[in-house]
Design a protein around this nucleic acid. Structure first.
Length: 895
RNA sequence: GGGGAUGUGGCGGAAUUGGCAGACGCGAAGGUCUCAAAAACCUUUUGGAUAACCUCCAGUGUGGGUUCGAUUCCCACCAUCCCCACCA
């Protein structure tokens, strides 16, 4: 073997060999335990970034570990290939999204392969493959047949000049991205998935994820689904021409209904027109509502809107006490939530409070404060939403709020003007987009038959190529006659194809089911194969997907369960949300320069372009615009993929943000050099041993191999006869194996695994020094040294697989490390013979004792008490008690 | 407004059924080797007191509490970050 470590040659060699030998290809094997390790689908942005390295390095480490532990490991890879950015880029460059995307895949694949990741590339898929999106269409039709997908009018961002719909990004700041035309809201017929039918299930089955998912993701999902328990109460409208006219509100605090001073509707409320009909305020109110509608949608920016409202002229009757309540319209009531109408209780709700103050609506006290005081409405500075005790609440006065809430709901139910109700924040999922680069919606509009799905045997509906994306009016697909004009599958008459495409979140809902059976052309996947591989044992990705993707995919799984395709309910057992890789930023006060590259800044923090003092920014997420991005391929060119991966994993725990550091990266490379060098030294020792006995290197190696075979490294007897430094290395090896093994099984704090590897490496150096000092080299030295080093190599493989493979081969193994097994440890051999025990007096460290590890508590106690320094500290005091923590510490309590 | 975190040396970070705070790495300082430099290796590196060793004192955002003992558990507060947000 070479004396020096040259990562470039080694990495190329092993990447080629893995590809040729399909080292990481797997098939179902019911006799073996499976492990499904999955990183989130990569978006085809066109360029790899450090975030990819971090994401994949975590997954790859775990996949390697499980492989060495004997699991049948599924570790696949694929591309999130549809979506707006490819379309936007294609318009800019005058090319075709398909070409753009395929080029991006080709380039990124080359980049990712240089990271040396242990993927089964035979399962690779791209969501823009017709063989893949065919099944999106198949699911769409199945769901349509069952009423899980429906159509409704829904607003989109609309550019009135070009007559096309815009994504939120294209309509940023309320103007069209192309020429700044103000965007308006337009109602279009769109496809929706009825995810709200699953709201309760999605919420309830979060409970089973609590052990394997980050707390905050579960919390975010709970919050997003947003279940509220309350009541719907129906108020009759006074003097209504149509006696059926009534307004239903949703409230979580029916116990405060005696404090209601108004009914307030959302501007979009369907009853509004009827209510104001014939009223003198009619025109004014409707104009007001129209204005609010625009304001609410396009003005959904950060700042809170002022509360604005208008009296409709109509009144409703409080069913509990017969009071007349004015009916208002206001901007802070949302049509999407609850019933789109509320009762205003200013003393109990801050928004109602502000609104009522502004418009002079009356206050009434209906409960005590939390201190048990009666509230004087005039003195109130803010609403009070505590659950206390009711007052002025008719026959329910004097009850606890909770009790009143329950009883009043029951009363409303009995009287027929209300009922207990559960409301969710979650809304149905709009899954159609009026854009080109996505899965075509497989539906046909026929004038006689209505909406007809494309028959299964005609799937996939393939996205046409060479489409002009620069259209004015409608979606690009509206301008492709061959695509648009079809005959109705039912009656054969001329019909029109639906030109919407699907939200890309549909693509990512079930891709990892497809990995299990990626080439199936009869079904999305064979349920039997999926039953073997699923659920995903470990999913790794960014926290930005905590709600959307991770809720949609849970929903899709439940849908697939209801379609009879899978038997389980939750697709992902363990989830890890990896932190971002960040770096320091530099900003010049001169707006022409703004963000600077580090090399544009002088040592005393001045801008090299203008000499201004540069603001050293916070450590922020890497991005091109902040000029703090690090290109992974450049880094790989410098020190190799192993060093890059090692650094990213060592920089901090996987789920925390990490800071990029050039010197830290060099440190990782330095460490691998150290590993190489110590391996080389051991190699030399073996040669020395052979030379001393007049045998060839080949023979020496063979002798070692044979002798080592008889050595059971986990047998406690194997420590017999070892000298001090041999025993020390052996002990440390067992300790390190134990700590890394436990870490992989439980916390997945990979940074500390790497620390442990470094400790073992340091111990190997100490061992090597001791061997040289004590020479000549003996067979026991070689056995212990090789054992430790071979353990180190196998444990290094998850973090730096190329160098591990190369050293493994250099040590005479013909198989890949991937075929090796994880080193085993023995608690017995990891145990220290002599331990250091701290002795405290009244909790303060006073002395340390070096004692035999098996010393009894009683002896330990005695040893502590006769210690000189302890004696000095306790002389003249009474000993109250002595606490002995076995093998760790003695605390003497004195008075 | 609601929800979730985080806070430890010059820096990244270790340490959890409560038991020696600072593992491992980076940086820094000194040394060995060298004509020299790089690399490599060795030593030191929480702060303070002391010429120095031994040693002593303080110390895990702040203030309390529980305990023989708290980075760890409880209460209050401060700071920073993230997500959602007029959700009735």
């Amino acid at each position: 073997m070479d004396e020096k470590y040259f990562p470039q040659q080694i990495e190329k060699k092993w990447q080629q060999r893995w590809a040729e030998q399909e080292t990481f290809k797997v098939t179902e094997d019911p006799t073996r335990k499976k492990f499904y390790c999955l990183e989130m689908l990569a978006y085809t942005s066109g360029r790899a970034h450090i975030g990819h390295v971090s994401n994949f390095a975590i997954g790859d480490a775990l996949a390697w570990y499980k492989r060495l532990r004997g699991f049948n490991v599924l570790h696949p890879f694929g591309w999130d290939a549809f979506g707006q950015p490819a379309e936007t880029a294609a318009i800019k460059d005058g090319t075709d999204p398909e070409k753009f995307t395929r080029d991006a895949i080709a380039y990124m694949k080359w980049q990712f392969q240089r990271m040396g990741l242990s993927y089964d590339w035979s399962r690779e898929l791209a969501t823009c493959d017709p063989e893949y999106y065919k099944w999106n269409q198949w699911f769409f039709i199945r769901m349509w047949e069952r009423g899980m997908i429906y159509r409704k009018l829904s607003p989109v961002n609309w550019c009135p000049k070009e007559n096309i719909s815009l994504s939120n990004e294209q309509a940023a700041n309320g103007v069209c991205w192309r020429d700044g035309t103000p965007v308006v809201q337009k109602e279009l017929m769109q496809w929706f998935a009825r995810i709200t039918d699953y709201a309760g299930q999605l919420l309830d089955s979060l409970d089973q994820l609590e052990s394997g998912w980050p707390e905050r993701v579960v919390a975010m999902q709970r919050n997003w689904i947003g279940r509220s328990y309350g009541a719907e109460v129906t108020f009759k409208v006074e003097d209504s021409a149509n006696s059926a006219n009534s307004i239903t509100v949703f409230t979580t605090r029916i116990d405060t209904i005696f404090g209601a001073n108004a009914i307030i509707l959302a501007p979009e409320h369907p009853l509004l027109n009827k209510l104001v009909e014939g009223k003198p305020q009619r025109d004014e109110v409707l104009a007001f509502a129209d204005r609010l509608k625009q304001q609410q949608r396009s003005g959904r920016e950060l700042e809170e809107l002022d509360k604005e409202g208008i009296f409709t002229g109509a009144y409703a009757i409080n069913p509990f006490n017969g009071e007349r309540l004015p009916i208002w319209v206001a901007n802070f009531v949302l049509i999407q939530y609850g019933t789109g109408a509320i009762m205003s209780v200013p003393s109990g709700d801050q928004r109602d409070f502000e609104f009522s103050r502004k418009y002079g609506l009356p206050f009434r006290q209906i409960k005590l404060t939390s201190d048990g005081v009666e509230i004087v409405p005039e003195d109130m500075k803010a609403a009070d939403d505590e659950w206390t005790t009711t007052v002025n609440t008719g026959e329910w006065s004097g009850l606890s709020s909770k009790q009143a809430n329950r009883r009043m709901t029951e009363y409303a139910e009995a009287q027929g003007f209300g009922r207990g109700s559960i409301t969710y924040k979650l809304r149905d999922w709009g899954i159609s987009r009026q854009r080109y680069w996505g899965t075509p919606v497989p539906m046909i509009h026929c004038d006689t038959c209505g909406i007809v799905p494309v028959p299964d045997d005609q799937l996939p509906v393939v996205l046409p190529r060479n489409v002009n994306l620069n259209v004015v009016g409608g979606s690009p697909l509206d301008h492709v006659p061959d695509y648009l004009n079809v005959s109705c599958p039912k009656c054969g008459s001329a019909a029109r194809r639906d030109t919407d495409t699907m939200d890309t979140f549909v693509d990512s809902c079930w891709y990892y089911f497809r990995y299990c059976d990626p080439h199936n052309d009869r079904m999305p996947f064979d349920p039997k194969v999926v039953e073997y591989w699923m659920p995903v044992d470990q999913y790794i990705g960014g926290v930005e997907h905590a709600v959307l993707h991770l809720i949609y995919t849970r929903y899709w799984t439940k849908v697939m369960r209801d379609l009879g395709l899978v038997k389980f309910d939750e697709p992902v057992t363990r989830l890890l949300t990896q932190g971002m890789v960040c770096k320091e930023t530099f900003q010049c006060p001169n707006p022409d320069h703004d963000w600077l590259f580090p090399e544009q800044v002088t040592e005393d923090k001045k801008c090299k372009l203008c000499g201004n003092s540069v603001k050293i920014g916070r450590v922020e997420k890497m991005s091109k615009s902040r000029k703090n991005a690090v290109d992974p391929i450049e880094m790989i060119d410098i020190h190799g993929a192993d060093s890059l991966r090692l650094f990213v994993l060592f920089a901090g725990p996987p789920d925390k943000d990490k800071e990029w550091s050039d010197t830290g990266f060099e440190g990782a490379a330095r460490y691998l050099q150290r590993v190489w060098r110590v391996a080389f030294k051991l190699h030399c020792h073996l040669d020395e041993w052979g030379a001393a006995r007049g045998v060839s290197a080949q023979q020496a190696r063979e002798t070692l191999r044979v002798t080592k075979k008889m050595w059971d490294s986990t047998d406690p007897e194997s420590s017999a006869g070892l000298n001090e430094y041999q025993r020390r290395l052996q002990r440390r090896m067992h300790q390190v194996i134990r700590s890394i093994t436990e870490n992989f099984e439980e916390r997945l704090h990979l940074n500390t695994c790497i620390s442990s590897l470094m400790e073992l490496t340091n111990e190997l150096y100490a061992f090597d020094q001791a061997v040289e000092k004590n020479g000549p080299v003996g067979m026991t030295d070689l056995i212990i040294g090789y054992e430790a080093l071979e353990s180190l190599i196998r444990m290094l493989a998850p973090f730096a697989p190329h160098i591990a493979e190369e050293l493994w081969e250099a040590f005479g193994h013909s198989d890949s490390v991937a075929q090796a097994s994880w080193p085993e440890f023995s608690d017995e051999l990891a145990r220290e013979e002599e331990i250091e025990v701290a002795v405290q007096v009244n909790g303060k460290l006073r002395s340390r004792l070096f004692v035999a590890a098996d010393l009894s508590d009683e002896d330990l106690r005695e040893a502590a008490l006769i210690d000189e320094k302890v004696q000095a500290a306790i002389s003249g005091h009474d000993i109250v008690k002595v606490i002995v923590v076995p093998r760790k510490l003695v605390n003497i309590v004195i008075k």
